[in-house]
Simulated scan of single mutants.
Amino acid sequence: MLERLIPSVRIGAAAASMLVLAACASGGRDLPRGGVPTPPVVSDPAPIVSGTMRPYQIRGRWYHPAHQPNYEEVGQASWYGPGFHGRPTATGERFDENALTAAHKTLPLPGLVEVTNLANGRSAILRLNDRGPFVDDRIIDLSRGAAQELGLLNAGLGQVRVRYLGPAPRQGGWVAGGVQTASAPAPAAVAPPAATTTTSIYWIQAGSFADRNNARAATRRLGDRARMDSVHVNGRRLWRVMVGPWGDPNQAEQARRGVIAHGFADAAIVGG
């Protein structure tokens, strides 16, 4: 079973049930004029889990959690799902793949963030209760429910804006269906895709190597589902190590995390 990387500094807190925020249950899905989601008012904030604010190290890299009241960042989001359902998160809460939650490397836990999918304008307010993702180009890891609400479930990855809202309530988070959709320009008319019986295929690219022998060694290290092929980039011949294929994006994401756990920190999902 592929294991999620959990910093050793985590200290458990009492598990919190995934309920709708009481402070805004009556109007959580409504949008004010202009289409901007209204941040919830948290009247009973949960205490920060002290263990999650200590510096920690993953695969030789140090991370330094800190209070960042003005945090706002644009970057890649990924998501994780059934393989971790029911397991403890960094705060001690049980991970619910269908709840609107997320993982971040350095923001206070538990906390609330507003995440906007820049491709479609959809926004959702998520409860941060875990650490990750430990890949350089990714700034947040979404639950399956959050990815579905933001329209990122099938893509697996997407460009998002993350804005920190402050402490999370002592109990709960937004349940699936609490998405808030920000106004976005209507896209140009596009013809619907033609009906097809072809199933989407996902591969994990573990890495690219200039040395063929290094690529062979990586292929052997990753097991029976790994293969090697060659590509030309800017006139150079590189050897890619690919793992797969998978017909389900969630299975591919679980496999990507396993590849990362084998030491390939830049592993990425690719279609083909």
Rank of each mutant, 00 (worst) to 15 (best):
S8W: 11
I125M: 06
T116M: 10
V233S: 00
A103Y: 03
L5G: 06
I58T: 05
V41M: 02
Y63L: 09
A210H: 00
M242E: 15
D96E: 07
S200T: 08
R256T: 13
V42S: 00
E72F: 04
D229R: 09
H104V: 01
G235P: 08
I140V: 02
A218L: 07
V41E: 14
P187Q: 06
S78W: 04
P187V: 00
G75P: 04
T199W: 06
A265D: 14
G271R: 08
A217P: 04
R227M: 13
I125W: 12
P55M: 02
G145H: 01
M228C: 10
G244Y: 12
M242Y: 12
T101D: 00
R4F: 13
W62P: 06
V190Q: 15
S183G: 02
N117V: 13
E97S: 08
R29S: 10
R127W: 06
Y63A: 08
N120S: 03
R122V: 15
T106E: 07
S26D: 05
A217T: 08
R256S: 13
A14L: 14
F84E: 11
R221S: 10
S8Y: 15
Q254E: 15
K105H: 11
P192Q: 11
H85D: 12
E73W: 04
P47N: 00
A77F: 03
R10Y: 13
G151I: 11
A23Y: 00
P40T: 11
A102D: 08
P187S: 09
V9L: 02
A66N: 02
W203F: 13
S26M: 03
P187C: 06
G92M: 09
N250D: 14
Y56I: 06
N98K: 14
G166W: 05
N213D: 15
L5D: 14
H232W: 07
K105W: 00
L222N: 11
R59S: 14
R144E: 12
G166E: 03
G244H: 12
I125T: 07
R227V: 09
V243M: 07
G60M: 09
A206N: 09
A168N: 06
G34N: 12
P110T: 05
I58R: 13
G111M: 01
Y164D: 07
R127G: 10
G272H: 05
R212I: 02
Q148E: 15
A268I: 14
R163N: 04
I6R: 14
G35F: 00
V179G: 00
R138E: 02
A15G: 14
D137L: 04
G92A: 05
G247P: 01
V42P: 06
I48W: 11
G263T: 08
I6W: 09
I139R: 03
A14R: 10
S123D: 09
P65A: 03
A25V: 13
Q205N: 13
L118R: 09
K105G: 08
I201S: 15
P32S: 07
H67S: 08
R170S: 13
L153V: 12
R212N: 12
G166H: 00
R33Q: 04
S143T: 09
P65N: 12
R240G: 15
G271I: 05
F209L: 01
A184N: 03
A15N: 10
G172W: 02
A189D: 10
Y164K: 05
P37F: 05
